[in-house]
Simulated scan of single mutants.
Amino acid sequence: MSLPHIMVAPNGATKTKTDHPALPITLDEIAQTALACRDAGAGALHLHLRDDAGRHLLDTGAYAEALAHLHPRLGEMAIQITTESAGRYEPGHQRYVALNSGAQMVSVSAREMLRDHELLAIRFYEEAAERGIAIQHILYSREDAEALVHVLPDRLLRDPGLQLIFVMGRYVAGQVSTPAMLDPFLDWMQAEAITPDWAICAFGSGETDCLRNALAKGGKARVGFENSLVMADGTTAPDNAARVAEIAAL
């Protein structure tokens, strides 16, 4: 299972309709947004759920219900669930959700997994591989990447199907991303002599420039309101599909 050239991340863990009225929250809104983004060029949906109070939700039952609701509506469009903690969940809970929600694609932060003992992370990665669950490893820095090397079994690290996502600008002042933020990750992959299936996401007004740079260098893109509400010209995007269409045109 490989990553699509474009994955849409339409809502994230914390944004609300006060940030943008077109931000999807309910399953029906997410489905409608995903279909519009599919038509605009996205091959997969990065799925976040909310509870009744609008808070970030990691729950196996809720994910199972969401996947059952979305798959028939989205057809062949792939669905990746998140295990982001958003300050609410511990690694054990995140691992359980990743393994027991019925999803075939899951994003997992290496930094968050390593809040626990390394052996627990190693066992988790091995079990996910045994179950055929495609883990996309979230890496915020080269230090995260180097830490992943120590806990990911070598056969998985060297597998060309290894999925990575490099995050540009998440933990910098103002969440401003620049294309140069990709360079440490490119250097790391070259140093490790690996050729994974990799993508980036980028925060703020630099999102389009960062995605353009990554696509030109052989990467893939995750785009959407989770990361930025801004078009390349600095105007506010009308909806997620507009952001996808702009990147698809690249």
Rank of each mutant, 00 (worst) to 15 (best):
S2V: 13
L3S: 10
L3Y: 07
P4M: 06
H5Y: 14
I6W: 03
N11K: 06
K17I: 11
T18Y: 11
L23G: 05
D28Q: 13
H46K: 03
D51A: 10
G54F: 12
G54V: 06
D59A: 00
A66V: 09
A68L: 02
H69P: 11
L70V: 10
M77E: 10
I81K: 12
T83I: 11
G87V: 08
R88G: 04
G92T: 12
Q94K: 08
Q94D: 13
V97Q: 05
V97K: 00
L99E: 02
L99K: 07
N100L: 04
S101D: 04
G102S: 07
M105W: 09
M105H: 06
M113C: 01
D116S: 12
L119Y: 07
A121N: 07
I122P: 06
A129V: 00
G132H: 02
I133H: 09
I135T: 02
I135S: 01
R142F: 14
R142G: 15
R142W: 14
A147I: 01
V151F: 11
P160Q: 07
Q163R: 08
Q163S: 01
R170K: 14
Y171Q: 09
S177P: 07
M181F: 14
D183N: 12
P184Y: 14
F185Y: 15
A193V: 10
I194Q: 10
I194L: 08
I200Q: 01
F203N: 05
C210L: 11
L211K: 09
R212L: 03
A221W: 00
V223E: 01
A237W: 03
P238K: 05
N240K: 11
A248N: 15
